Simulated scan of single mutants.
Amino acid sequence: MPLISIHLPSGVLSKRDEAVLASEATDILLGLEGMAENPKARRLAWAQLHHFDLDDFYMAGEPASKPHYRFELTVFKGTLNETVKQKLTQQLTELILRLEGTDDNILNAARVWVIIHEIEDGNWGGAGKIYYLQSLRSMMKPS
Score class of each variant (00 low, 15 high):
Ala64Pro: 08
Tyr69Cys: 10
Lys87Arg: 01
Asp104Ser: 10
Leu107Tyr: 08
Ala25Gln: 02
Glu37Arg: 06
Asp17Val: 03
Leu80Asn: 04
Gln48Arg: 14
Glu62Met: 07
Tyr69Gln: 09
His68Phe: 10
Glu33Gln: 07
Asp104Gly: 05
Gly61Pro: 10
Asp104Glu: 10
Gly78Lys: 04
Glu18Arg: 13
Lys40Trp: 03
Ser14Glu: 11
Leu54Gln: 14
Leu13Gln: 08
His68Ala: 06
Ile28Asp: 01
Ile106Ser: 15
Thr26Arg: 02
Asn105Glu: 10
Lys66Gly: 06
Lys85Tyr: 06
Asp17Lys: 15
Leu107Gln: 15
Ala19Gln: 12
Ala36Gln: 07
Leu44Ser: 10
Ala60Leu: 07
His50Lys: 11
Leu99Val: 04
Leu88Trp: 02
Gly101Asn: 11
Gly34Tyr: 00
Ala19Asn: 08
Val75Asn: 12
Leu99Tyr: 07
Leu95Tyr: 07
Tyr69Val: 15
Arg98Ala: 11
Tyr58Phe: 15
Arg43Asn: 11
Leu13Asp: 12
Glu33Pro: 00
Thr83His: 13
Gln86Cys: 04
Gly34Thr: 02
Gly34Leu: 00
Val12Ile: 09
Asp104Lys: 14
Leu107Glu: 15
Thr83Pro: 02
Lys85Gly: 04
Ala47Asn: 12
Leu99Glu: 05
Gly78His: 02
Asp53Trp: 03
Leu107Ile: 12
Ala41Val: 08
Val84Gln: 15
Asp27Phe: 05
Leu73Gln: 06
Asn81Tyr: 03
Pro63Tyr: 02
Gln86Asp: 14
Leu73Ile: 15
Asn108Phe: 08
Phe57Met: 13
Pro67Gln: 01
Ala19Cys: 03
Ala41Pro: 13
His50Leu: 11
Asp56Thr: 00
Ser14Trp: 10
Trp46Gly: 05
Leu97Asp: 00
Trp46Ile: 12
His50Pro: 04
Lys85Glu: 06
His50Phe: 14
Gln48Lys: 15
Leu107Asn: 14
Phe71Asp: 04
Phe52Gln: 09
Asn81Cys: 08
Gln48Ser: 15
Glu18Leu: 13
Ala109Ser: 14
Asp56Arg: 01
Ala60Gly: 09
Glu37Tyr: 00
Leu73His: 05
Gly31Ile: 01
Ala47Cys: 09
Ala41Thr: 11
Met59Ser: 13
Glu94Ala: 07
Gly34Cys: 02
Leu13Pro: 10
Asp27Gly: 06
Leu54His: 11
Ala19Met: 03
Leu97Ser: 02
Leu88Ile: 05
Phe52Ala: 01
Thr26Glu: 07
Glu72Phe: 08
Asp17Arg: 03
Leu21Phe: 06
Leu29Asp: 12
Ala45Thr: 07
Leu54Arg: 12
Leu30Gln: 01
Trp46Asp: 14
Leu21Val: 03
Leu95Asn: 09
Glu62Tyr: 05
Lys40Phe: 09
Tyr58Gln: 08
Asp103Arg: 13
Ser14Ala: 12
Thr102Gln: 13
Gly31Gln: 04
Gln91Val: 00
